[in-house]
Design a protein around this nucleic acid. Structure first.
Length: 286
DNA sequence: AATCCGTGGGT
DNA sequence: TACCCAAGGAT
């Protein structure tokens, strides 16, 4: 059955895997944790330079824990979803204070850290510690949706059936290798947009392929221009690129709509991504 | 369950 | 050129 997907995909990975720094033998659990949070909804190519800089600057949780949250946000640069920088900083402080400076090894302990959900906990437990978990990211879900269910896209949210299927495929030995293999296949071959079926090691057993690659329903993408998110991004960029506190005027000039701008700024303050000083200037959190 | 949360590159 | 979407998580 679906278990016959394993050997071809493992073999394909052995020949086609990318040499990524967080996959090397000398990668630390901390480096792997940092990479997983940076990779949430973010392409590898954009993570690489930021990850390299972070690991040189903060090679262990204790180092980041000693920095301010604002410094974490500043060095996050334009990776996107900057609350992840705050999450990573909070992870560093929790690991330092509650786990003796060692990244926890179990799924449950990892899952309890800020910004670490089901996927990231399973990924770190597996990749950093050799744990056996279903590592269900968007790549894996797409490969399974196509190869097994014969559909172009996975369901919007992870279903119990997907989880059962993923768990049934975990090999008794080498779970981490299997997880990274099927993820890599989704990332490089079984892509969302223009899948390279001619390079796929399991094309002969793919239900979607044999059905003629039927198109799934068109999914509504979220527009971005003019949103609060774009406004928040503009405002935070001002704070990030300034060496110190900035007057409110510096924020006002980057977004015309007054009501939306104030709402977005309040949101940044609420989220702990910015703070206001007694003199009315703004900066990244100290 | 549906929305919100950034950013930039590929198609 | 628009649009899609990328190793998700929190609410």
């Amino acid at each position: 059955m679906a278990v016959s997907l394993r050997e071809p995909i493992l073999q394909w990975y052995a020949e086609h895997n990318r040499d990524l720094p967080w996959r090397r033998p000398d990668a630390t659990p901390w480096g792997i944790l940092v990479s997983e949070i940076m990779l949430q909804q973010t392409p590898v190519s954009r993570v690489l330079p930021i990850w390299t800089d972070w690991m040189a600057r903060w090679p262990a949780p204790e180092a980041l824990a000693e920095a301010s949250p604002g410094e974490a946000v500043r060095h996050w640069g334009r990776l996107g979803y900057p609350r992840r920088a705050l999450n990573l900083h909070a992870c560093a402080r929790a690991i330092t204070a509650e786990h003796g400076g060692r990244v926890p090894a179990t799924y449950d302990d990892l899952r309890a850290l800020p910004g670490i959900g089901d996927y990231t906990a399973a990924a770190v437990a597996s990749f950093a510690y050799g744990g056996s978990h279903a590592v269900l990211d968007t790549n894996v879900r797409r490969v399974l949706a196509r190869a097994v269910r014969g559909e172009e896209h996975p369901p919007k949210t992870t279903t119990a059936a997907e989880r059962r299927l993923a768990e049934s495929l975990i090999p008794p030995v080498g779970a981490p290798r299997w997880a990274v293999s099927i993820m890599e296949l989704g990332a490089l071959v079984c892509t969302a947009r223009a899948p390279r079926c001619e390079r796929c090691p399991v094309v002969s057993q793919c239900a979607w392929r044999s059905a003629g690659r039927p198109a799934g329903p068109v999914r509504r993408g979220q527009t971005y221009a003019g949103t609060d998110r774009q406004c928040r991004g503009r405002l935070l960029a001002v704070l990030r690129d300034a060496p110190g506190p900035v007057p409110k005027k510096a924020l006002d000039v980057v977004w015309a709509d007054h009501v939306q701008r104030e709402r977005a700024l309040d949101g940044l303050l609420d989220d702990g991504l910015a703070e206001v000083l007694p003199d009315g200037t703004y900066r990244l959190p100290a």
